[in-house]
Write a protein that binds this DNA or RNA. Sequence first.
DNA 1: ATGTAGATCGTCTAGACAGCATGTC
DNA 2: CTAGACGATCTACAT
Length: 751
Amino acid sequence: MQPTDLTGLPDGVPEHLAEQGIEELYPPQAEAVEKGVTDGESLVASVPTASGKTLIAELAMLAAIERGGKALYIVPLRALAGEKAREFEQFERYGLSVGVSTGNYQSDGERLANNDLIVATSEKVDSLVRNGARWVDDLACVVADEVHLVDDAHRGPTLEVTLAKLRARVPDLQTVALSATVGNADELAAWLDAELVDSDWRPIDLRTGVHYGQALHLDDGTTRELPVERGEAQTAAIVRDTLQDDGSTLVFVNSRRNAEGAAKRLATVVAKELTSGQRAELAEVAEEIRADSDTETAETLASAVERGAAFHHAGLSRTQRELVEEAFRDRLVRTVCATPTLAAGVNTPARRVVVRDWQRYDGDSGGMKPLDVLEVHQMFGRAGRPGLDPYGEAVLVTDDHDGLEALFDRYIYADPEPVRSKLAAEPALRTHVLATVATRFATTREELLEFLDGTLYAEQTDETGRLEQVTDDVLAYLDANEFIERDDGLRATETGELVSRLYVDPMSAAEIIHGLREADAETTPLGFYHLVSRTPDMYELYLRSGDREKYTELLYERETEIPGSTPSEFSEGEFEDWLSALKTAALMEDWTEELDEDRIAERYGVGPGDIRGKTETAEWLLGAAERLAGELDLDCTTAVRDARKRVDYGVREELLDLAGVRGVGRKRARRLYRAGIEDRSGLRNAEKPVVLGALRGRRKTAESVLAAAGHPDPEMDDVAADPDAAPDEAETTDGGGNAGGDGQASLGDFE
DNA sequence: ATGTAGATCGTCTAGACAGCATGTC
DNA sequence: CTAGACGATCTACAT
């Protein structure tokens, strides 16, 4: 089948596709068309990565738009939302518009309601529905990318419930679910009343195997020599071998430390093969990495990159991750050692993939747990760049003979696990039951159960009554916390409705409300940071050895600043969680005391990416706390707002006003303040030489800052910097604050 | 006394969504 | 119910 055979698409699209070099549809794509994706037919496509899933989705969405409806594309990651939207924008010339909506990014220009094609994360879609987005009723087609993620215990239920809700709300909604190859694609299709395309077809050949001894044992039964030199790791030998064939290698490992360690060692292998031109280009990338952050993580990464290797994990900042991905795609960095961040994220294929570690620590099961077949296959799928490599090769590694056969059985010849719904767990149902009631989607227990009957869980379970039981437990919980009322039917209280719209876990909301009610004149920002940090929506910081004593001491020192009562030291788990939350709160306090990033990273043993992640979450939760405090008319509303703003800007109290000026962050605000400019109006009326001096003579910066502050004449030409206003760098290194510092600053700060 | 291979012990462990209103150095 | 890699420190023994 050729693109020009396609019907039902906007004018010009078939020709456009042909011009893009698509002569013939891939077999799974042709099958999808035959089964009716362009006629509004629902479809589950279970096919390997990089075998043309995106085009199937595009055909479905374009046809739906041509029929006069809207299309929604649901992605699992924010980073993918932008990437997909850029891809879809190629069709804007055929008269349709593309919009993006994620938690941190809302498409500008026309509101979402005016876009024909919307890309969003599953949580954002859920949130939009909760907040009453009208355009949902105009949908003709939803696409769920990576639908096998409904198996994920944490985020899977959201995708599952969102799909069920959209389908229940919009009659005859076309549902296109794209999945990796899984064990039970037929069940997914049955759930979504969809046709099924289940295929192993790949555009380029993928060879898989295991490296053992001096050879690569491949899945087709052949063996290829791949010698390991004395004192050399197997992975190093594989990287060296790939390099001789001018290819790149992606190495998956099970911890951040291993990723960094492996990158360091492999760098010596890659460095031997570099030309001086490549060295120079790599040095530039390394410089950008150092410029982005001066943490130890950044330095380790930069020095590996200089030698053509890199690591990739969630401790890296957004910029660092992108630099690594880009340098790898440009074949500058020839090997990347990564944790699973890279397997699920943006498109970064390599000639060879090595899955070095096939087990990972899992606290719940108390030891190392083998990775799922599906997960390993997803990593394998990163091997081979379509149109660039003749083939891809993905290998596991073992050093004992029994392991060779065991790995073949476990991962090479094995089928992926079936996808199982994780909906019937309290944490998942808490939030979705509340939302369903709050939006009046269900007004009785019966309607609620009827709705839940449309989920994958109901499709899969044999255990009658389980979902009903958990639902009743959840309803009782929500009732006890006054989020819903159960007189005649179900109804959300005003608080309950707000909680649903704020998108926080009801249990977090309950904890926050409880804490806010106990807040008094002694409560400090640290106390509010602790309150949101002990919520289930905050991912806990790991307590390392020595931390237990350290934070126990800190806790008793500052106990009165924290709202709520400290759990008994003898109730092991709870006390531990309390300390862990205190560690997070202390990090937040250091951040708001303007401690430098590298000091924070060192003190808490985290990377720049973690600091960002923590402050982002805290800011979000403090925002929710602020709204809840307002709703309940509590005295601490202003104090919470200040705490939130301080986390947002990363500044002490006296800089809040200045840091609110566009173009002024924590660093610039502090410099201006030191030069005697204390707030926005001070900036507006400031002497230009002083401002210029404080901003280290950066004319452009000074002009835009003055303009943002509302200065009548921001022009900086012919202004000389006032040397007295220039910051003394020696003083800027450390904000002087620490966990035991002057947290008393806002004591008694209530209205 | 000094050097060093090898045993022993202790430490530590993947990822990332959301409200709201606008922009870091 | 369950682990294992890595690095720091210690020990034993040769020189």
